[in-house]
Design a binder for these strands. Structure first.
Lengths: 229, 229
DNA sequence: AGAAACGTATGACAATTATCATATTTTTTT
DNA sequence: AAAAAAATATGATAATTGTCATACGTTTCT
């Protein structure tokens, strides 16, 4: 089993603020686990006993809307921590986490996180910084949802996916989502989403091959997002 | 000048986790200030040098959408702290704060907050808890914005206002907003909002007297919010 | 291989919402 | 108190988006 000290996640998440002793301690009690595509890490209402480190793969954070649709709030990818919010505030999670591809995750028990949080100010500042960043993004997202139309929101979602997952060798976004899932991100009906994807495709903004999507012109998509059409 | 130790705000915000010495120290360097209705506490992009304690009155947190409309993200009222996020993460604010009525606020310099945050684990846990709570609400809000229609969102906004400001003696919500401001909360055109208010009024869900709004049946509004119409 | 199930796509239509024009009312200013 | 400005209200219409029906293509299962 590999040690936390050498793990890449440490470099990019709030864990970077931990000292050697803390890392060794965590290394000893963490549990590694493989999560298959479609598997559920946790569900709305669950009480988490620790945080997940994503070593490989990605998952979506979803929330069941009152209308019965599954809304994708965001994606958590390699190098991210998952579950910080509810572990530290000691509340049940308000979102479900489902793997969008095969994952490899480590589980760090709540006690370890809290001990470091209370004992290591550098760590607590980093954790809060992470959560504040999420809060800022969430507020921005809410404004976009409220003020933009579906076309603009689709543009936003495509840019977000591109940003989060990057491109493969052919320039396609490195994640495969169903049309229904994308509709769930954008907040629209699946049929409407499909139509809009074809429209974007016809206008040469994107190229679609099955589930794979390539952004042909970031600038043009950016313009759509900003309402310049 | 009154002391922080006796201030009501202390009881309801994360400040309750501060000890006597910390409170006395803060008491000594805080600055009280009166903010008139319509005055700006800070604007998108500003770098805050401390947090505000709201002793009296309320302000709206708004964000200018790419479409040029002012979206109201939330309200901060008596007893709340304002600016924690950006003070602790040491980033510029992403929202503007504008007084919706006359306010009385205290300003606590950044250094005081950070010293306590780093030195008093109880306080840092409370602060994070507050921010986590905001994050949870923001995520929920984003989902509602994305998945609900305008009518449902108006119901949500009315319930939120009722919750946040309470009722006056006649049962009207204790805040007066322009139609444009409410439209900015809901994320719709002002004309659409006005129509929907009349519709709610005709159906007996609310009673409208000028800028004053009374919810006649919380249950019915709740049902509208949930899509039961 | 064939059937069933599912995801994707498209047409037709209805419902929702935005926009523009124009009253009407309220508030502010002079 | 009258005039001007701003906010509220309503009608007409267009644009956007959702819903239902149906067809087509893929995947899955036996």
């Amino acid at each position: 089993m590999s040690k936390c000290e050498q793990c890449i996640i440490r470099k990019f998440s709030s864990l970077r603020a931990l000292n050697k002793e803390e890392l060794i301690k965590i290394s000893g009690c963490k549990v590694s686990r493989v999560v298959k595509k479609g598997d559920i890490l946790f569900e709305e209402g669950d009480h988490l006993k620790g945080v997940f480190c994503i070593r490989e793969g990605a998952c979506k954070l979803t929330k069941l809307s009152p209308n019965g649709k599954n809304h994708i709030v965001k994606f958590i990818t390699k190098g991210d921590l998952l579950g910080q919010r509810s572990v530290i505030s000691d509340e049940s999670v308000n979102l479900s986490a489902v793997a969008v591809n095969d994952m490899e995750v480590c589980f760090i028990p709540r006690e370890e996180i809290m001990t470091s949080f209370k004992g290591n100010p550098d760590f607590s500042v980093e954790v809060v910084r992470d959560i504040c960043y999420d809060l800022k993004n969430s507020d921005d997202g809410a404004v976009n949802m409220a003020q933009k139309n579906v076309k603009q929101r689709l543009a936003d979602s495509l840019l977000y996916l591109h940003d989060t997952f990057g491109e493969d060798v052919d320039g396609f976004i490195k994640v495969q989502l169903s049309r229904e899932e994308i509709a769930g991100m954008v907040g629209t009906a699946t049929e409407s989403l499909i139509r809009m994807l074809s429209e974007f495709s016809k206008k040469g903004l994107i190229e679609v091959k099955g589930k794979r999507i390539k952004i042909t012109s970031i600038l043009k998509i950016q313009n759509v997002s900003d309402g310049i059409m």
